[in-house]
Simulated assay, not measured.
Amino acid sequence: MNDVTPPSVDDVELRLLVEAIYHVYHYDFRRYARASLRRRMSAAMAHFGCRSLSELQGRLLREADVFTELLEYLTVQVSDLFRDPGYFRALREKVVPLLRTYPSLKIWIAGCSTGEEAYSMAILLREEGLLERSLIYATDINPNALRRAEAGIYDAAKVPDFTANHRRSGGRSSLSDYYSAAYDRIIFDKHLRKNIVFSDHSLATDSVFAEVQLVSCRNVMIYFDRELQSRALDLFYEALCRKGFLGIGLRESLRFSSHADSFAEFVREDRIYRKVDGE
């Protein structure tokens, strides 16, 4: 007797849809966590007025503009300046003293979304006197998010939260020193932006592009399945220099991953790890 439960129609439709995205548009969501994908696709179906994933797939294959809009649902764009201030305080107090020993610094913000974390890092490095000898690679798979990030323009209504986070992160100056305001928008100083390279990069399909001293990839891997998490961690391990640092999200952990022995806890409560080098 066969006890294997056959996949549901929804499961089959979802698998076919992400395969279509991969083969037609070369974006790989095949190893993203299924529960998260289902939620996002449900929201997308409502937006496009589709009654099924098959209907959405039909439109996707015939209307290129549909994919551009769908990408906004498939990529997470929830961010904030100095989000989780304790993380940046730990970087400032525990990691920066060691980063000072390098003549030049390269930092990778993986999954940078609309750029808030990249600017947070640039401000922190400026305050610690390290920005001029640093290069920040800020990468994402969403071209619209990258364009917004590179512009460095944000809603002025967010400034009170940005300012409070900056202060709690151990900020050494006024946040207003780093942006100018006009009407209901703020724009970050071009001197911050000149040390940031915004670029398209997929943790699912692309390779390592540089050796770095710090990788910050926060609240990204929670949307991956175990296999894709392992691939991302492979990339981070390969990219990091000897005894380099890795920061992940507060809801993420390496404890049960295939790379549990590749990184040692450095600041446990803020999810900062240090690369363990082989003999």
Score class of each variant (00 low, 15 high):
residue 141 I to K: 04
residue 273 Y to S: 04
residue 9 V to H: 04
residue 41 M to V: 13
residue 174 S to V: 02
residue 197 V to N: 13
residue 145 A to S: 15
residue 70 L to G: 06
residue 92 R to P: 02
residue 50 C to S: 14
residue 238 E to Y: 13
residue 112 C to G: 00
residue 168 R to L: 15
residue 83 R to D: 15
residue 114 T to P: 00
residue 275 K to G: 05
residue 222 I to T: 00
residue 63 E to I: 05
residue 98 L to Q: 11
residue 76 V to N: 10
residue 231 R to Y: 12
residue 107 I to E: 00
residue 185 R to I: 09
residue 112 C to R: 08
residue 180 S to R: 13
residue 179 Y to F: 15
residue 139 T to E: 07
residue 83 R to G: 15
residue 122 A to Q: 10
residue 249 G to T: 10
residue 243 K to L: 09
residue 94 K to I: 01
residue 48 F to Y: 13
residue 182 A to S: 12
residue 168 R to C: 09
residue 193 R to A: 15
residue 116 E to T: 09
residue 2 N to Y: 11
residue 191 H to N: 08
residue 139 T to G: 12
residue 209 F to D: 04
residue 210 A to N: 09
residue 65 D to S: 13
residue 63 E to F: 06
residue 11 D to K: 05
residue 176 S to I: 09
residue 258 S to V: 14
residue 139 T to Q: 05
residue 4 V to Y: 03
residue 118 A to G: 00
residue 135 L to V: 13
residue 43 A to E: 07
residue 59 R to H: 14
residue 44 A to Q: 06
residue 64 A to N: 07
residue 165 N to H: 12
residue 167 R to V: 10
residue 206 D to S: 13
residue 69 E to G: 05
residue 52 S to L: 13
residue 126 R to P: 00
residue 218 R to N: 03
residue 208 V to R: 08
residue 13 E to L: 08
residue 147 R to Y: 09
residue 269 E to T: 05
residue 74 L to G: 02
residue 224 F to R: 00
residue 108 W to V: 04
residue 126 R to I: 00
residue 36 S to N: 07
residue 69 E to P: 12
residue 121 M to E: 07
residue 207 S to P: 11
residue 191 H to C: 00
residue 187 I to T: 15
residue 245 F to I: 06
residue 161 D to H: 15
residue 16 L to Q: 09
residue 160 P to I: 06
residue 177 D to M: 01
residue 257 S to Q: 11
residue 76 V to K: 01
residue 89 R to L: 15
residue 201 H to Y: 05
residue 247 G to E: 08
residue 165 N to P: 09
residue 63 E to K: 11
residue 23 H to L: 12
residue 176 S to Q: 10
residue 69 E to A: 11
residue 128 E to G: 01
residue 124 L to V: 09
residue 31 R to V: 02
residue 16 L to Y: 05
residue 148 R to A: 15
residue 252 E to F: 10
residue 180 S to H: 10
residue 182 A to N: 11
residue 112 C to N: 02
residue 230 S to K: 11
residue 201 H to F: 04
residue 246 L to R: 01
residue 204 A to L: 03
residue 50 C to N: 12
residue 136 I to E: 08
residue 53 L to N: 07
residue 151 A to V: 02
residue 88 F to N: 09
residue 170 G to F: 14
residue 185 R to V: 10
residue 125 L to C: 06
residue 107 I to C: 02
residue 250 L to E: 12
residue 101 T to Q: 15
residue 161 D to G: 03
residue 23 H to T: 15
residue 129 G to F: 01
residue 221 M to C: 07
residue 60 L to D: 05
residue 96 V to A: 05
residue 26 H to P: 00
residue 181 A to N: 03
